[in-house]
Design a protein around this nucleic acid. Structure first.
Ligand SMILES: [Mn+2]
Ligand SMILES: [Mn+2]
Ligand SMILES: [Mn+2]
Ligand SMILES: [Mn+2]
Lengths: 218, 218
DNA sequence: AAAAAATGCCCAGCCACACCGAGGAAAATT
DNA sequence: AATTTTCCTCGGTGTGGCTGGGCATTTTTT
């Protein structure tokens, strides 16, 4: 059984590797992501390599083994299934669930997750629009595009959010954006790439390029 | 935040104190309940006393402080609420839930437990018939009587089980007993106090005095 | 009251986990 | 080749939890 901390490391490494498939996952990036020091990371990497959960060539970054990848995906799966439960069943807001899921994801019980999955009717995306890995580790690559990449006249449905730290979802609420709304790009201001959007054919919203780079549409 | 182990100790001490209100909770009883050694218990008792979660007079046993009691009851509450969830919502058998609840009880989120409580419609007893402490720590004393204490001719409804370790509930299933069945004592064999019961006015079951001492009826 | 038995404390130590600063080695950049 | 950046190594800290063996205390027996 991996410890909570080990699972958190594996998950973080998986996500960093995923985010930029080319680059190798470096000690400092992991340290930054987990707000700890490089020395602590090196330490943990040695232990995880010892347990064969990753390959660690010094100065060369790190790569999950199949088993390490399996554990990382399992943790992500649990995290996201719990998030769905919290939002759909317990009425949490989508910006309140992360912390709690961060704890629930460490509960060890395959049967529990199987039953929860069934109870939720086998969801494939979490409340933030992120895909829920299947039990066998398969991840449905969402067909999302960055909102910032759309051209004037393009339409789409808001499907996922990149930055899920609390302030951002709150900002979205405030400007009247939520997952599932229909969007059409009315204008793209050339000098700063900010976007003028029609929302649900009703309202108009202006967002910065920065925001556009944190939203996905289908 | 108390650690998992600390919470388990507090819970165990609370239950031992509850079980026999007169006697003091001794080091060895705690050690036995947690399958660890007396020396380890002494160690933990010192630490819990340090944190003011219990009073510890050496050679004199141990007593929870109000704060320690609060934490113990909170843990019991969480444990039992999760058990209700597992059985009622996820379709677990009542003899499968204990292990998982033993982990879930350590998740720290008052909001979560509040929402879960509401979601379950404020249950007051868990699937084993044990009372769920209220948020303020109030415990409804169940009006149960020991099945073994009934007289010939008495009737009741099976309401709770004392020994919830796996084999016992499985035995109950096998002989056709479950929480909620109607019972009538047909006969009480005087030489070994075994009981002949009518179940739901249909079947007849013979149980030992030992079993009778592990079942509660209302 | 004394002796014997049971109980429980104390000590010293062990191990796992997680973290860190400082300094020097390696790699990337110029 | 020199400089800057990255990151590994080393030694060390603190916490949490567990243990065996010896001794102290309490309880029971006589
Ligand atoms: Mn976590
Ligand atoms: Mn999420
Ligand atoms: Mn527990
Ligand atoms: Mn129970």
């Amino acid at each position: 059984m991996p410890s909570h901390t080990e699972e958190n490391y594996l998950k973080t490494i998986y996500k960093l590797a995923e985010a930029e498939p080319g680059q190798d996952v470096s000690t400092n990036r992991i340290a930054a992501a987990l707000t700890t020091r490089a020395a602590s990371v090196t330490d943990m990497l040695r232990r995880l390599a010892e347990k064969e959960l990753l390959r660690y060539e010094k100065y060369r970054g790190v790569q999950l083994t199949p088993e390490g990848r399996r554990l990382a995906l399992l943790t992500v799966r649990k995290h996201r299934l719990w998030e769905v439960f919290l939002v759909q069943q317990l009425g949490f807001n989508w910006d309140e669930v992360h912390e709690v899921a961060e704890e629930l994801e460490h509960v060890q019980s395959p049967l529990l997750m199987q039953r929860l999955d069934e109870f939720l009717d086998f969801p494939t995306f979490d409340p933030h629009g992120d895909p829920i890995p299947a039990e066998d580790g398969a991840v449905r690559r969402p067909t999302h595009r960055l909102l910032a990449d759309l051209e004037v006249g393009d339409r789409g449905t808001l499907a996922a959010v990149k930055d899920t730290s609390a302030p951002f979802p709150q900002y979205l609420d405030k400007v009247g954006l939520a997952l599932g709304v229909q969007l059409k790009v009315l204008d793209k201001v050339s000098f700063d790439n900010s976007l003028e959007l029609r929302v649900n054919r009703e309202r108009t919203v202006l967002i910065s390029a920065e925001v556009g780079r944190n939203l996905f549409v289908t």
